[in-house]
Computed example of a mutant assay.
Amino acid sequence: MNQLNPGEEAVGRLFPNFATDPDLYLYRIEPIQGTASVMVMDEAAYNAARFMNKDIVSLDTLGANIPLFRVTEYAQARTAPARPVHFILHPSHTGSTLVSRLLDATGTTLGVREPWPLISLAELQDDLGTKHSVVSEQDYGILRDSLVTVWSRVFRPETTGVVKATSHAGRAVPDILRTHAASRAISLTLQPEAFITALLARQNPIRELLGFSIERMKRFQRRFGDLAQPVHAMTPGEHAALAWLVERQVEHDVLTARETKDRVIDVDFDTFLDRPAEELGRIANHLQLGATDAAVEAAATGPLMSQYSKAAGQSFTPQMRRALMEETRQVRGGDIARGMAWLEQIAKTSPAAAALLG
């Protein structure tokens, strides 16, 4: 008789409550293979996770691979109405991890930071209706709705699931908002020059930007036309400008669309840092979290505001960020200027791009 390993045994014990309880985190989906990976996570593990992708897997992880249809089957069979799940949209490096952690600190949310299946969903959405799509529109809708149900699960009834999208996976969120009327979102942003500076402040920005620019350029061409040089010819500042333009378009779409505009608010991260308690309260109120003024104030004035949100215990204050931004402007001013010139040139020939630049 085959004996189950500890991970399979734990999954088997928890899976009957999969549709309602978050103890089994849906770590990954593989639509082509028709499999899903689930792992055991308690509330403390959710709260500690920086990104909920391969970073959270360790040698001690308890989990198993299961048929993907089991995920959709259980999610569809949920008898009680699913709770709303809300979203944080952002173009990267606009404080999304900090805001997610601050919301958790108010005691009213369960943050799901950058779930890997959302990236897979975005990739599937890109191909819908094409000959090479591996899922039908009907099956895509079932998977999308099942994932929303999974992200809506919480440990405590007074909390609400809030998904912080990976920046380039945010393109899947507009469709989720259109098809789930109870879901709301915040749109984190920076002004173009500040955003380009923030991205170029990294030690080796081109390493991060180049891979994402391949997919972003495809979206750029679909939305704005054949107006830019190829990815290989772009400078670091231009890569950063491309990221701002393409991801800001996603935010603009939900901020202006008739079906979603009343459920999304825009939040400038520099403004947030100037008055964190006020802006955090505005976010909590918009998401209808029921956070008290005292809880918001405690979160906004607590230790999270002086730490690097992606590395617990590492000091990083708003003052340190401002100093880093000014140093980057001094050191990489030419790259920043080239990024801004790229945006201005695109705006001259694209009314859609001009609208984003205001």
Rank of each mutant, 00 (worst) to 15 (best):
E259H: 04
W116H: 11
D270S: 15
R275L: 10
R144F: 04
I196R: 04
I56R: 03
K261Q: 13
V154N: 07
A228H: 06
D266L: 14
N204C: 05
G107S: 05
E215L: 14
S306V: 15
I206W: 07
L121M: 07
I336R: 00
K131E: 11
D23F: 05
H252R: 14
G290V: 08
E30P: 02
D293K: 13
V38T: 02
R219G: 05
V264D: 09
I119C: 04
P91T: 07
D175C: 08
P91H: 03
T20D: 13
T94Q: 04
G358L: 01
A198W: 01
I176D: 00
V154D: 04
F155E: 00
N47S: 12
G95Q: 03
T328S: 04
V135D: 02
L68R: 03
A19M: 06
V162S: 00
T260F: 11
V264N: 10
T292F: 07
L102V: 04
Y25V: 04
W342Q: 04
D253K: 08
R219K: 11
L190M: 12
Q191G: 12
E8Q: 15
R13E: 15
I196P: 05
V148R: 11
E193L: 01
L190Q: 12
Q249A: 15
T79H: 07
S133D: 01
I88T: 01
Q319R: 14
G333D: 00
V85I: 08
G334F: 00
V296R: 01
Q203A: 14
D42N: 15
W244S: 03
A299S: 14
L242N: 01
L245Y: 02
A172M: 12
T109P: 13
